[in-house]
């Protein structure tokens, strides 16, 4: 199903190839319009972020917010990063990169992490 479709925020990615980083413009659109980075529909609750253990530890994610089910689908995508895990939250902060940041990409900081479903 989703594995053959290009997720919204990866508009240019080839379905069979590694996904790579999402597109900045779409990432910002997802964040502000509060839509899912995979299906582009309104986000639900909780909000899911896909990220590597390092991203989770830093609480700074680069993939756009998603539905939990979309995040699970994307994790099974042929081009997904095998180290991705899912973090759920109620809210997040959008952080635009600053000139001097070590990290030049737009990122998300969940502000209300969830323990229970």
């Amino acid at each position: 199903m989703i594995a053959t479709r290009t997720p919204f925020a990866w508009g240019e990615a080839d379905a069979e190839q590694e996904l790579g980083p999402p597109l900045r413009r779409q990432v910002i659109q997802c964040a502000l319009s509060r839509i899912c980075g995979v299906c582009a529909e309104s986000l639900g609750r909780p909000i899911a972020f896909l990220g590597t253990p390092e991203e989770a530890a830093r609480n700074a994610f680069h993939c756009p917010p998603m539905h939990v089910t979309c995040a699970e689908d994307l994790r099974r995508h042929a081009g997904a990063d095998p180290r991705w895990g899912i973090t759920t939250t109620s809210g997040f902060e959008l952080v635009r990169p600053g000139r001097d940041d070590a990290d030049p990409d737009v990122r998300f900081e969940p502000n209300s992490l969830l323990q229970d479903p």
């Binding site: 989770a56 530890a57 759920t88 992490l113 323990q115």
Partner: peptide, 12 residues
């Protein structure tokens, strides 16, 4: 500590 299962980062 929080969730004690690696989710909430309270314990970081």
């Amino acid at each position: 500590y929080g969730c004690r299962m690696g989710i909430c980062h309270t314990c970081t």
